[in-house]
Nucleic acid binder design. Structure first.
Lengths: 219, 219
DNA sequence: CGACTCCTTGAGCAGCTTCAATCGATGTGG
DNA sequence: CCACATCGATTGAAGCTGCTCAAGGAGTCG
């Protein structure tokens, strides 16, 4: 399932190891709810999320919304097409990011390692988006929600005794717009998972996965 | 809407103008219904469609299918993620393709122009896929079919007197799996468009767009 | 001509949405 | 400190869109 677009978040790999040239760029902070860029803006830099979570969205004229992706630590966002951004991007919580010049992707001469890393990130994003197509086009509501929770748990969960715990910084409506559902359906599916003992909720934004096998079986 | 992934099909631009190095690669033919590669195969080459149409698909274990894209002339297919193909690819009709070594994308040293063109193609694909998200997640059946026909018409239509004509080499079930619908719904929507005078059908695979404005209004 | 495949059409149903009301958490002012 | 307003989440009821199941039609190829 598609959530994010990693360069490569393994410790010790290039992407998260600033040391040369562009990599020395000082991380900066994006306040909760503030925007990084808008659809149509010219792309001057790419960004890698270091801490926090951002949201990439597109809008139809009539207000319908699609959340294209959530950007988690390690993920690279802002790939240009025809030099422009094709989504809006804003922060769900206070977020720190590192930025790269667009030319680092488009002209590899200055820093071949960085160029390679950004290219790999772009290719991984294509692959991840293909997964997401399957989910949007061919999965039921509970399969969508289960897949979403399973991926977040695997990639960003914390151990909590025998279980795993995740924090969902986004609203139910963001999850709905990511999965192509309504907030009501997402909410009902959470309730279903809770009542069947697959997950427990600690407040609205914290999910404890009680039965990871059952969750995977639902994807 | 997402159909394909262009390098750039404008006459005279690089992508369709073989002249140097890799570009001298002799186009080859892929027979109707034969496969170019399968999901999981190692990526050794990328391909650009010259004539014909290919189909990129992914399957779920239970047989549900998603058509990821149709590859039309000019489109580049086969971008690797982790070195592997993440879709199956086969030809809907006899198709000629030109191939590029994978290294032409990943190491720009040998042919910088080709590297740039392939990179641009990858970035355009990301953008095009984002459009497709909106369609899969947030559009109704008739909006999906209308969008599909509108894009094909704009990009691959032929003038026919006052109208435009397109050939759809794929089956109704391919369109359904591309749009996240069933064949029955696609068929019914075609009938609806026909009965409302927006399109006419000349056989199953030829569509004449009678009212392009109405078609666009439905997207 | 007959068999096959794909497309179309119909009827009934299910899943998701829509509309609406309530609940719960958070924040603000008196 | 509490009443109240606000916003998001949840729950319920009803309706609609698109799916499922089924049958018949159209084109193709042996």
């Amino acid at each position: 399932m598609y959530v994010t677009m990693k360069i490569d978040a393994d410790p010790g790999t290039y992407a998260l190891t600033p040391s040369l040239g562009e990599r020395q760029a000082v991380p900066f902070t994006l306040k909760e709810h503030s925007c990084l860029y808008f659809e149509g803006d010219e792309v001057t830099r790419l960004y890698q999320v270091i801490t926090g979570v951002v949201r990439l969205t597109r809008l139809l004229p009539d207000g319908r919304r699609q959340v294209i992706a959530f950007g988690y630590p390690g993920d690279v966002i802002g790939f240009p097409a025809d030099g422009r951004h094709h989504t809006d991007c804003d922060a769900l919580v206070d977020t720190t990011l590192r930025s790269f010049k667009r030319s680092a992707l488009e002209h590899g001469d200055e820093d071949p390692d960085l160029h390679d890393a950004l290219l790999r990130a772009a290719l991984r994003e294509i692959s991840a988006m293909q997964d997401h197509f399957m989910m949007l086009g061919r999965k039921s509501a509970s399969e969508k929600v289960a897949s979403f929770l399973a991926v977040i748990t695997e990639r960003h969960g914390r151990d909590l005794g025998a279980y795993r715990q995740i924090t969902l910084p986004m609203a139910r409506s963001d999850i709905a717009d990511f999965l192509g559902l309504t907030t009501e359906t997402v909410s009902r599916t959470f309730t279903l998972l809770r009542k069947s003992g697959v997950i427990a909720l600690d407040g609205v934004h914290t999910v404890i996965v009680l039965d990871a096998d059952a969750l995977h079986a639902m994807t």
